[in-house]
């Protein structure tokens, strides 16, 4: 089972890496529109990574959002 999980995680990572490579290979003027295109796609990038872990990453704002209610 561990092997299956490892393999799947590596596949997810490779998929993310190839999507991010599209941004990295674009010139600076086009990077944001490439990112927007990725976000429009109904996939891993939109659903889980960029929006939720980018936009809502409140720690970057130095304000709440990760108040750890389950921990205290």
């Amino acid at each position: 089972m561990n092997n299956f999980i490892s393999t799947s995680l590596k596949q997810v990572s490779a998929d993310m890496r190839s999507k991010m490579a599209k941004i990295e290979s674009a010139n600076f003027d086009n990077k944001e529109s490439v990112l927007d295109e990725l976000i429009k796609e109904d996939d891993i990038v939109q659903n889980e990574v960029l929006v939720k872990f980018g936009e809502e990453s409140a720690w970057l704002d130095g304000i709440g959002g990760w108040e750890l209610p389950m921990w205290d």
Binding site: R17, V45, L50, V51
Partner: peptide, 22 residues
């Protein structure tokens, strides 16, 4: 290493998002 590959890509996605959108 599957876990480290995964968390590195998470951070990469976040860095793209934060620099480009924010």
């Amino acid at each position: 290493d599957s876990i480290f590959q995964f968390i590195i890509e998470f951070l990469r996605a976040k860095i793209h998002y934060v620099f480009l959108k924010r």
